[in-house]
Amino acid sequence: MKLADVQTILNTEVICGREHLDTEVVAVCGADLMSDVLVHSKEKTLLLTGLTNIQIIRTAEVGDLVGIVLVRGKRPGPDVIQMAESKGIPLMVTSLPMFESCGLLYRAGIKGCSELVVAGEL
């Protein structure tokens, strides 16, 4: 699945990183605890979160995540958007809540992080 498919399934608005919509999404992680994201996510993971602070961008950068979808229609501040742009991290917003967002992506065939075994990964 690509980020463009996620955009369609969750009917997201793309805040920044439109040029990265053909990036492959291997797994999805839905969480508001960034340390949990760092523990459980793999490379090429999409983050679904209800947080809108600058640490979501840092976490995506450090964890090599492919992008972030903000759930429940939450909008990030200009500082967060600016950092996402500077780090090349796609940022989208969906009006759907977390559970439904995760459910729709899972039904579409995307895997959770625990189901994914990547060679050489933790």
């Binding site: 508001d32 605890l33 960034m34 340390s35 949990d36 760092l38 523990v39 979160t49 947080l51 602070n53 640490q55 979501i56 976490t59």
Partner: peptide, 8 residues
């Protein structure tokens, strides 16, 4: 802020 989960 998403930290302080005791996982650091």
């Amino acid at each position: 802020m998403g930290f302080g989960a005791g996982m650091g």
